[in-house]
């Protein structure tokens, strides 16, 4: 299963890597935003889907990554910038996780939301105090092909890691925590360590994505890169796609970036209304997400085929 999954990921990645040479700029930027959400939603589901600790903090990690990029891109080599974004985000998630991962359910969700807003305001305040401005203009930036390939690499890494985690004891521990945390602990799972590690791992991808995407925008400010909407859309994509599946969030990321690109510019409000309605409908009627649709069908068809 894991091997076949990895092969599919490799195939998809090879096709995606060729796109900048095949398509026009508009379609490439569409593919880029799709890849960004693949990375965000897949890494979110890796932790939150399995453990059922619903995190609304993705925008904090994304924003931190973006600011790491803004601070270092002129001075450091590009891979170091990306790794820096990933590391800072992971370290921040690890520390925050130590403080808040003992709280489940609504508390955790609200706290992660608070965390990302607090980070946004703290960065705003810090930039005002020490840099004198709120926004930053990024004058030095790698070529758009480099950015595209970087985000592709991050997305592939996220999917690849998710596949590996699923087949691992670490992944099993995450699932056990989601099913019954105390029970898992009495069976020998070091729950606190596993949760903090999972949260940090998932944040690393968001941080890397933020670091890569920051240079695309040339001008960044806290309102844009810590936008809670990034976190919400990530949750939305993962939930609509199916928080426990791998292919679901991939498909949902594709659908949403198409929707976003075509609707957002012409009808921004209609786009967000549609998102809201989709989120409600998905939560109410598709608890397993889109993936639930074909999984139920597969399950329903299996006995018939056996007969």
């Amino acid at each position: 299963m894991a091997r076949r999954g990895l092969a599919a990921v490799a195939g998809g990645a090879a096709v995606a890597a060729a796109l900048p040479w095949l398509l026009d700029d508009f379609l490439v930027s569409l593919a880029l935003s799709c890849l960004m959400y693949v990375a965000l939603a897949t890494s979110w589901a890796m932790f939150s889907g399995a453990t059922r600790y619903v995190s609304l903090g993705t925008s904090a990690f994304f924003g931190l990554g973006a600011y790491v990029s803004a601070w270092t891109v002129a001075a450091a080599p590009w891979p170091v910038v990306i790794a820096g974004g990933a590391l800072i985000a992971a370290a921040f998630a690890g520390l925050a996780g130590l403080a808040i991962l003992h709280l489940r359910g609504t508390y955790f969700a609200v706290l992660t939301f608070g965390m990302s807003e607090l980070t946004r305001h703290a960065v705003t305040y810090g930039e005002k105090q020490y840099a004198g401005t709120v926004g930053r203009v990024l004058t030095v930036a790698p070529s758009s092909r480099t950015v595209y390939l970087t985000v592709l690499a991050i997305a592939v890494a996220a999917v690849g890691v998710a596949v590996v985690v699923r087949g691992s004891r670490f992944g099993l521990a995450l699932i056990g925590i989601g099913a019954d945390e105390q029970r898992a602990q009495t069976l020998g799972v070091p729950t606190r360590r596993v949760k903090v590690a999972g949260f940090a791992l998932s944040a690393a991808f968001a941080g890397a994505a933020g670091a890569a995407m920051a240079v695309r925008w040339t001008y960044i400010d806290p309102t844009a890169v810590f936008n809670p909407f990034i976190g919400l859309q990530t949750v939305l994509i993962a939930i609509v796609g199916g928080p426990l599946s791998l292919t679901g969030p991939l498909l949902a990321a594709l659908v949403f970036s198409l929707l976003a690109e075509f609707l957002r510019l012409q009808f921004p409000y209609a786009y967000l209304i549609a998102l809201g309605i989709l989120l409600i409908v998905a939560v109410l009627y598709l608890p397993q997400g889109l993936a639930g649709l074909w999984q139920t069908r597969a399950r329903a068809e299996r006995p018939t085929a056996a007969r």
């Binding site: 105390q182 602990q185 009495t186 069976l187 020998g188 799972v189 070091p190 729950t191 606190r192």
Partner: peptide
């Protein structure tokens, strides 16, 4: 924590 007890041989 509980997992240390489990690893020491306490099951419940």
């Amino acid at each position: 924590p509980a997992h240390v007890f489990a690893r020491a041989g306490i099951a419940r």
